[in-house]
Amino acid sequence: MSQIFHPSANTIAKVSIFGAIFFAGGLLVILNEVNRSPYVTRVGVAREQPVPFSHKHHVGGIGIDCRYCHTAVETSSAAGIPPTETCMSCHSQIWADSPMLEPVRASFRTDRSIEWTRVHDLPGFVYFDHSIHLKKGVGCVTCHGRVDQMPLMYQQNTLNMEWCLDCHRAPEKYVRPREEVFRMDYRPQESQQVIGARLVKEYKIRKLTDCSVCHR
């Protein structure tokens, strides 16, 4: 009986073993890239909202403080999206006939909530709390970016575990004085290294990297 395989099949077999490893490796790289791409993390992708609410106009333009609308951010885990009454405290008179604001007025009339599209959305198995981050001197802008320049809200950071840990391992790279937490255009007066190290001591900031801090 003649041979089924030509001797060159040996080479093909060897190459294809290597090929398979490279192929599998490449697939992992691609998957990893996809997982970090805006397509999955939604970084920088502005969302459609029922009302084209602009932080750029309200925060950057008129200079309203975050807490006028996100009242709970200092005291609770969730910052909270403002109820319609908050909009109406100004829009009862400003742009009161604008069709753009009709959903707001309709919501006020009928007492049905406006259904905003969630932009930041951690998985259910992650615990997050705004109040502690603000008390320990992490600014809104560090996590949410230049909100005062966003005509429509988008996510500035991935919210990956890697991203949380980058700061939890070395908070001194990011913390600022408590009074500056709400400032969008804060610039450290001295170098961040000096200020960071001092604040970590002053606020007794711990390096929280145990799994149970975020997965409880």
Binding site: S77, A78, G80, I81, D111, R112, S113, E115, P123, G124, F125
Partner: peptide, 18 residues
């Protein structure tokens, strides 16, 4: 697992009439 069937603050519900 990312989105377990539990209520989060300010979510929507079809159980309550509002």
């Amino acid at each position: 697992m990312h989105d377990p069937p539990r209520y989060r603050a300010q979510g929507s519900s079809d159980f309550f009439s509002d």
